[in-house]
Design a protein around this nucleic acid. Sequence first.
DNA 1: TTAGGGTTAG
Length: 537
Amino acid sequence: MASSSSSSSSPNPTQLHLSPHATRTQKLPRTLPLRTPAAARGGAVAGDDRSAPPRPRSMSSYVESLQNGTIPDTFTFPPLLKSLSDSNALLEGETIHAHVVKMGFERDLYVRNNLIRLYAVCGDLVSAHNLFDQFPQRDVVSWTTLISGYSKMGLLEQAIEVFLCMVDEGFAAADAVAIVAVLAACAKLGDLDLGRRVHRYVDSSRIKLDVFAWNALISMYAKCGDIDSAYKCFKKMPRRNVVSWNAMISGFVRAGEFERALSLFKRMQGEGIEPDDATLVGVLNSCASLGALEMGRWVHVYVVRIGSKADGVLGNALVDMYAKCGMIDHAMQVFDEMRKRDVYAYTSMIVGLAMHGRGEKALNLFNEMLRVGISPNRVTFVGVLSACTHAGLVELGLRHFEDMSSVYNITPQLEHYGCVVDMLGRAGYLDRAREFIRAMPVEPDAFIWGSLLGACKIHGEVAMGESVMKHLLTVENEEDGSYVLLSNIYAANNRCHDSNRVRKAMRRKKVKKTPGCSSIEIDGVVHEFGVKKKMEA
DNA sequence: TTAGGGTTAG
């Protein structure tokens, strides 16, 4: 690439050195997946006979103005290119690019940055990067556009490498917007160490953060699993908007801290901040996990009162909340009233029905989903396999399991193998379940063996239970559940002596039974309670 | 006059 690096050889105190390779000769990433314009549009696939999208209005206006004899100037192209980017109109964008070159406006930084953005958002990172490289004159907007383009395409290492190149080589000074772009890439990558270094870089180089950048920091920490640092940022930021609250509430949800999520939501209400869909989704997720039905209902009433449609992400969260709070008919009602149902809506409902033992209804819904042309995903199959388990439809379940990879190109994960083991085991096919585990291409985990141990308990299979327990102990560390289950298998088969032996072993190994814990919601407040006295094994 | 950014799913 053309170099416009700072010529100073003295060390820059704010130099980032984020990467162990930061001192090597910097080359921008070039190993990019080539995408055809059609693929980049995200539309055309084999056998797709949809008609071409209509020409964007901005393009028609441009053509009309040319026909009226208007001569374009540098100010003509940025808004036009922005509009084409927003409608993913790569072909029209390429036409405009040709006009730009022909009229000699390609050197204009505003025009070129807009062209880089057009190619980047349409997924053609090769053209975006080529254009970026073509002229030495670039600014922080050019760099940020490229970083963001890579990040949005999921090319996160490349996004970070471009950022490192920019700051370590001194090509441009990072500002709050560039920081947001690179933090988003760190968050998607889940790279906490890198995110922390970017934060330190921000502090040392005294970049003035705005509310967007603070929100990006909260989100980065939350997505990388450091909820305490996220909360520190939330408390420290000088000004907050609704996204700040949403980022923190969803961060608590992600961390499994549902009470803190609800408590923050109440604080948000106390401060008079109007919640939006993202807030309510976070609140509903917490309600679903805590069984806080009253609060979940309050959200539903609120959604209706403000005239919002319970569609999209919010509708799905409502379905999920009602299903997990035991109100499957309410879940079904919300689902039925949704105008547009996507794979998430169907999956929430299928999983919910399966959880409630309505296997056949779940399977009917799965068939309906296929009929209307929605492709299932990984989680849909968790629901489908679980529905087959509850309906006792073992052979059908095995066919669905086969179809996952052969028809839908979804590689089964441990959770799916677990479902099949559970399905075979509950139906009494313990040998088949054992054989299935043996043939698994992935190492069985504690849940897989635990499912089989559970089946041994149901069917009184003492010998297999003992053997499974050995496997279980090789993959989990002194977990109480397995010991208790084996002890119960013995007890249910009148082998009290063996049952006591297992309990004694638990005491000897200091395995404590986790005290039972439950929660109840009174007046919208979730109270958690458990057994106070430490339970004796 | 014109360009880059943050939150929400089973």
